[in-house]
């Protein structure tokens, strides 16, 4: 997960969930893994917001005396080859990762879910056009497409978000489409039809609330995936501007010192690993039906 760019998993094609949905563990006890995951995410976001001001260490400050510092009261997680505080840099990178992760998934869902619902509902030409676009985009490996887009658009946070959103939104289209298709057989959608409810209202009131759990679960996994792609792009130097600390960029810079000072890649690597793992574990809580998104694990 640290060095080489991971090969993207095969394109997930979620199966439609059975029409009869059962609720599982809603409001039930949290497992230990889920508590730890939630704990880490709270810690990360809290630390990201509070610690920089509390500690007053600039992630860009260099210092000859603190080069390759070990764990110490001054540098809690050590310092890198230029004497920059690793924790401060990792937390600064977290801001970028969280912004890009959450942002690109939100945009992908906002584009993908309505398209998927409409394609399922209307079928015919609309569905054919939408699935064609989706299939074309999904024909590219996600990371390769992101790489191409990022290098074409140039380094900036917005461009990285675009580069991640484009390969990601088609999966939301497919998920929403599959979930909606399963709902179409239910009598309450037909009842709404007979009442004469406008299509948009049916989508908003009858369909969306009943597919939201699967979308949410997949969204959490996708945040992890987006952060991973962002890390890969930064690692390759085509992500956000290089002056901005990022986990991927830190791993890249620390790579040369891997044998002598492994802390340089261990710290950002651990942040990346724990965050993605936590997001994946948390997503289980939103699963109504295990089949709905297992295929979408990336």
């Amino acid at each position: 997960m640290t060095a080489a760019a991971p090969v993207p998993a095969p394109v997930p094609t979620p199966e439609p969930a059975p029409a009869k949905r059962r609720r599982r563990r809603r409001g039930g006890r949290w497992t230990i893994a889920e508590r730890l995951s939630a704990g880490w995410l709270i810690l990360l976001v809290g630390g990201m917001l509070v610690l920089p001001t509390l500690r007053g260490i600039d992630p860009l400050d260099i210092g000859a005396e603190s080069r390759f510092a070990k764990l110490s009261p001054e540098h809690w997680l050590g310092a890198d080859n230029l004497g920059r505080d690793l924790l401060a840099r990792a937390l600064d990178g977290a801001q970028v990762s969280v912004l890009i992760g959450v942002g690109s998934v939100l945009i992908a869902a906002l584009i993908g879910v309505p398209l998927g619902m409409l394609s399922a509902y209307y079928g015919g030409v609309i569905a054919a056009v939408i699935s064609f676009v989706v299939d074309v985009i999904l024909a590219f490996p996600g990371l390769v497409l992101a790489l191409g887009l990022a290098s074409f658009l140039g380094a900036s946070v917005t461009n990285v978000m675009i580069a991640i959103t484009v390969p990601m939104f088609p999966v939301f289209v497919r998920l929403a489409r599959a979930q909606t298709l399963a709902l179409l057989e239910t009598e309450y959608l037909e009842a709404s039809e007979v009442i004469g409810t406008p299509v948009l209202s049916i989508m908003r009131r009858d369909v969306l609330p009943n597919i939201s759990e699967a979308i949410l679960a997949f969204g959490f996994v996708s945040i992890g995936r987006a952060i991973l792609i962002e890390g890969s792009l930064s690692f390759l130097g085509i992500g956000v501007p290089r002056t901005q600390p990022t986990w991927g960029g830190m791993i890249n810079e620390g790579r040369i010192y891997m044998t002598t000072d492994p802390l340089l890649i261990l710290v950002p690597g651990a942040f990346l690993l724990l965050t993605i793992l936590s997001l994946n574990l948390i997503s289980d809580r939103f699963l109504v039906d295990g089949d709905a998104v297992t295929g979408a694990r990336a």
Binding site: E187, Y188, G196
Partner: peptide
Amino acid sequence: RRSLAPRVQAIFQNPAGSFNPR
């Protein structure tokens, strides 16, 4: 759409299934 509603309305076989569970 709406060519028959609201003058023609319906009830279905599966009572619970014809209501939005949420």
